[in-house]
């Protein structure tokens, strides 16, 4: 398969082999009506094996948040059958409602309506901490 097979959408490439389903769940792609292709263990010159996700629609989400799951991935934006943008996601300074704080003592554990917000506290270690209780994020 190649990216030309999508007309308007997103190709998430160079996903570490075996991580595609994690990204699928993370982006809640099961809720989309459009075509979504998951390619597992595709041959990669750089990585040996890689996963790819093709989504036949634009998504209204901050794809930079994917950098938290796998900083090696490449995001390709396809418009009218042409790749108009290719980039590596940068670690966002904050991520909201993407991961949940697991600290049972955190205020978010009792106040259900609060957004779960994490702040990037160490770029080298990909470390995020809850803005409320400062617990380290874990997926």
């Amino acid at each position: 398969m190649n990216i030309d097979s999508i007309n308007n959408g997103i190709v998430i490439d160079h996903i570490k082999a075996g991580q595609a389903m994690k990204i699928y769940d993370f982006l809640e792609l099961d809720k989309l009506d459009c075509a979504v292709a998951i390619i597992k263990n595709a041959t990669s010159n750089k990585q040996g094996k890689k996963d790819i996700i093709k989504i036949d629609s634009q998504l209204d989400v901050d794809l930079n948040a994917l950098g938290y799951i796998d900083p090696s991935i490449t995001i390709n934006i396809i418009v009218d059958g042409v790749r108009v943008k290719k980039y590596h996601p940068e670690l966002p300074l904050t991520i909201t409602n993407i991961i949940r704080c697991k600290n049972p003592r955190c205020i978010t554990s009792t106040e259900q309506e609060l957004p779960h917000v994490f702040k990037l506290t160490n770029r080298e270690k990909d470390e995020y901490r809850c803005i409320y209780c400062e617990s380290r994020a874990s997926i």
Partner: peptide, 27 residues
């Protein structure tokens, strides 16, 4: 003072007067 960690941060996001954290759980 609140038993849950981060409650004063929540308070500071909506308050129109200064908030002083007088202890939030073990935080």
């Amino acid at each position: 003072r609140h038993p849950k960690e981060g409650a004063p941060t929540v308070a500071s996001q909506v308050a129109s007067v200064p908030i002083i954290n007088a202890g939030d759980g073990g935080h």
